[in-house]
């Protein structure tokens, strides 16, 4: 199975608003505290985005839209990642580039 990578992906996302996905160091604290249980893995979403794995981002639509944007995770993130804003920005990308809304 081949994985397509779009090197310009993060440029597109940055054009949509402020983000700091690159601050995430994959510790998983956010997942441990998230009310949505383990279906939603911000660290994976951010990794896919940073690597430009657009197919993965499209496949993760459900988890991207499941996020409550409640920011509970941000209270314990050791890296100050703006998790909710970053996830919302992935929605902006999907709306614009995938759903054509």
């Amino acid at each position: 199975m081949t994985t397509r990578v779009d090197p310009g992906f993060m440029k597109k996302v940055k054009g949509l608003g402020d983000q700091n996905m690159e601050m995430c160091f994959n510790c998983s604290k956010c997942t441990a505290i998230c009310p949505m249980d383990t279906n939603l893995l911000p660290r994976s979403l951010f990794r896919y985005a940073l690597l430009g794995m657009t197919d993965k981002i499209k496949a993760e639509q459900e988890s991207i839209y499941s996020c409550l944007l409640c920011k509970l995770c941000e209270e314990s993130c050791p890296r100050g990642v703006k998790i909710a804003d970053n996830v919302r920005l992935l929605r902006s990308y999907l709306n614009r580039d995938v759903f054509n809304i």
């Binding site: 920005l89 992935l90 709306n95 614009r96």
Partner: peptide, 11 residues
Amino acid sequence: AGALTYDLGAD
């Protein structure tokens, strides 16, 4: 005010 469309990323 557009809270729901903002949350859905419809900028």
